[in-house]
Amino acid sequence: MGQITLQQVTKNFGDVQVIPPLDLTIEDGEFTVFVGPSGCGKSTLLRLIAGLEDITSGTILIDGADATAISPAKRGLAMVFQSYALYPHMSVRKNIAFPMRMAGVDKAEQDRRIEQAATALNLTDYLDRRPGQLSGGQRQRVAIGRAIVREPAAFLFDEPLSNLDAALRVGMRLEISELHKRLETTMVYVTHDQVEAMTMADKIVVLRAGNIEQVGSPLDLYRTPRNVFVAGFIGSPKMNLIEGPEAARHDAHTIGVRPEHIDVVETDGQWQGRVGVAEHLGSDTFFHVHDTGLAEMLTVRVAGEVNLRHGDTIHLNPRADQIHRFDDKGLRIQ
């Protein structure tokens, strides 16, 4: 079991309120991702759940029981840290065994769980090494192994992939997702990378300045962002946001069109501009379009290869059913 409920939780550092009153329920077995720009309070929120920080007011329930005043050790949660936080003076085996040693699990059971975790994480050959002798990806796996063997009610991940290089990150992303499918344990995952959020989450919580901007499945957020901030934050490349007369034409203060929802046509496009940078990836082509009179720059994504170069005139047609409209407060107009 691993349902986590936050009720009217706030956090102040001195006089500064970093988390205004916040309500959130994370269902048992759900993979929830907290995402937002740096300084949005997502790590603080995770540390409040872990118990590493006291909350200023409110209640945290774990499986319906009040855990607000319980020490981190007794909450039954496991955490994977950004820096992995492995114990440098212990072997991999001892690192993984540490939480079980603290909990007084008997030796045979310890060995069984270590074997199991090591096999699942491809660490069998490294059990007697020190963390210093491992690569970044291996350290990451040890940190996960240390979390698994506790059989926690929920896993907490604090930007666990941010210290890995790009290729490794994609691999570890898959491994963590597979782990979740296999264990079906609640996971709470903090990241600033919206691609991680989109690919891994059952539920995404978008945070800004301690406030929840929107909660929903990745596709909910992609299809119907509740406001301009979420619209701009979710999706890569970013949604094009256009204000002024063109927005007014759609009865909105701001309209947003994703780069993949703009078609390039030969002539007579609704919009036209001049190609600045053209990024030819083969599978896709990205155009940075200037001088459209709509915004500083529009990004357009076209599948496959399109032969337009720097300085060429480009004609564009936004898909009418994919235009998001926002009012002057930045909220979505249904």
């Binding site: 540390r47 118990g51 590493l52 920080e53 006291d54 020490s71």
Partner: peptide
């Protein structure tokens, strides 16, 4: 960063 208990 810490909790009240560790502070005292």
């Amino acid at each position: 960063m810490a909790t009240k208990a560790s502070r005292s």
